[in-house]
C-alpha cells in the first residue's frame, strides 16, 4: 500500500513538518500516539527500544521515557503536555533529561494534528526548535545516535556482503 509520507524543513523558522497517512481509523491511531503500552511498541527506531517510566496523558503532566540501546545504554527524555484536544490535536514540549528527570532546557515544541478520510488517518506533525543552541545540541546528540545507528547498518551490510 502506498501511504503518504512528507518531510519538509523551514530552516529560517527552525521548524520541521512531517505528514504521514496510516491505514487505520482515527481512534486507533490516536490511541497509538497517546497510550503508553502502544507507544513503547513503535516509538524507538530499531535496534533501540522505548521504555516509558511515567505517563499521564493530561495537560501539565508528562511522559518520562528512555530510548534504550541494545547495549542497555539509556537516553532519557521528558514530553510535557501543553495542550490536548481529544482525537484532534495535542502538543508537547520535548526535552532531553537525566535519569532523575532533570530536563536540559530549552526543548523542542511538538504539535500533532489528526484527521480521518476514507478510513485512513492523516497525522501532521510540526517540530519547532526554539534556539539555535538547541538545534546544535540535537545535532550533536542526533549525530552521535545516528552515527551509532549507521554503524549498526554498516555491520549488517558487511555481514550481508561477506555472506555472499
Amino acid at each position: 500500500m502506498n501511504l503518504l509520507f512528507d518531510f519538509t524543513v523551514d530552516k529560517a523558522a527552525k521548524t520541521v513538518f512531517i505528514t504521514r497517512e496510516f491505514d487505520a481509523d482515527l481512534s486507533l491511531v490516536w490511541d497509538a500516539f497517546t497510550k503508553q503500552e502502544i507507544l513503547d511498541q513503535w516509538w524507538a527506531p530499531k535496534p533501540w527500544a522505548s521504555k516509558t517510566k511515567v505517563m499521564n496523558f493530561k495537560v501539565g503532566d508528562r511522559r518520562f521515557y528512555a530510548m534504550v540501546s541494545p547495549e542497555g545504554q539509556e537516553r532519557w527524555s521528558i514530553q510535557k503536555y501543553t495542550s490536548i484536544s481529544p482525537k484532534t490535536n495535542f502538543k508537547f514540549l520535548n526535552a532531553f533529561a537525566d535519569k532523575d528527570e532533570n530536563p536540559e532546557l530549552p526543548g523542542s515544541e511538538w504539535d500533532l494534528s489528526f484527521s480521518e478520510e476514507n478510513g485512513k488517518t492523516k497525522v501532521s506533525v510540526s517540530i519547532y526548535n526554539e534556539s539555535l543552541e538547541r538545534m546544535e545540541k540535537m545535532i550533536e546528540m542526533g549525530f552521535k545516535e545516528g552515527f551509532m545507528m549507521t554503524l549498526k547498518s554498516l555491520e549488517d551490510l558487511l555481514a550481508t556482503l561477506s555472506g555472499k
Partner: peptide, 9 residues
C-alpha cells in the same frame, strides 16, 4: 518509526 507503527496498527 512510522513503518513500525504501521505494523502495530
Amino acid at each position: 518509526r512510522f513503518q513500525q507503527l504501521d505494523q502495530v496498527l
